[in-house]
């Protein structure tokens, strides 16, 4: 189970958020990231939080998953909070602990920054929870489409991403196989000093790299044999569709932006 979690944390579902076009999701998140930095009053923060929590609720992703998604950034959030608490020296002194004075403004700013972090991470993790990696890839290809005009290799980038998605599980299975094979020959990955363990990993990495290169070579040949010659003249099986739900989302988001600017102090 934990193996399949590594690429993408997609949780299948049929919610409003799942059904949105991935392009819409990415675009909205992009703009959300921007407008978060415009919030400066309790009301405006409240509105943004309402939007984020509302989206999370409609996605029907269990709260525990979202919390798990926040886990790696807890440290960052607490660190920035403390930093603001200590560094900011404006407003009234609230308390003084061991000679350190905590200012009102520090508390407010610390809280605001932490909240911003939370909102950003919540919304972006919502994207990966409700969108398959391949949908994200397709959306990126479409959204970056205009860059083709300046010869940016958009199609190649998307193909690279989708091939990585295709091969990551395969290579992980292979790593497991090799590590078992090496373990059965007496290589010990778990105990010993750090140096010993690094040494033990080498007989794991070498065959893995050799096989990955061989795979890449064979794959390139198979792709050519199957007529692949770049993005030019290619049709696509997977299509993205903008639907009614996307229109609702845009309307909601515009209302949010208007609300935000009305409630700014």
């Amino acid at each position: 189970m934990s193996n399949s979690m590594i690429i993408g944390q997609y949780i299948p579902g049929d919610s409003f958020v799942h059904r949105l076009d991935p392009r819409s999701k990415i675009a909205i998140i992009f703009f959300f990231v921007i407008i978060v930095f415009f919030a400066n009053s309790v009301m405006s923060y409240g509105l943004l939080a309402l939007f984020a929590i509302g989206s999370a609720a409609t996605s029907r992703i269990p709260l525990s998953y979202i919390m798990k998604g926040l886990k790696p950034v807890w440290f960052l959030v607490i660190f920035t909070f403390l930093l603001h608490l200590i560094v900011t020296k404006q407003g009234e002194v609230l308390v003084s602990i061991l000679g350190w004075e905590i200012y009102e403004e520090g508390l407010i700013q610390g809280a605001a920054i932490s909240l911003r972090f939370f909102l950003l991470i919540m919304v972006t993790s919502l994207l990966t929870f409700t969108t398959t990696p391949i949908e994200i890839t397709d959306a990126i290809e479409e959204l970056l489409g205009p860059l083709k005009k300046v010869n940016f290799p958009v199609h190649e980038l998307a193909l690279m991403m989708s091939i990585s998605l295709r091969f990551i599980p395969t290579l992980m299975q292979e790593t497991e196989k090799i590590s078992k094979a090496q373990a059965s020959r007496g290589v010990d990955f778990r105990t010993g000093s750090f140096k010993d363990r690094v040494k033990a990993v080498i007989p794991l990495l070498v065959p893995l790299f050799v096989s990955a290169f061989k795979r890449a070579e064979e794959l390139a040949m198979a792709m050519e044999a199957r007529g692949y010659q770049g993005g030019e003249g290619r049709t696509k099986l997977r299509e993205l569709h903008l639907g009614k739900t996307d229109v609702y989302l845009y309307i909601l988001f515009i209302l949010l932006v208007i609300g935000l600017f009305l409630t700014r102090s």
Partner: peptide
């Protein structure tokens, strides 16, 4: 080798 000609996800 069927694995290394499988291109799609």
């Amino acid at each position: 080798n069927p694995d290394n000609q499988f291109v799609g996800t």
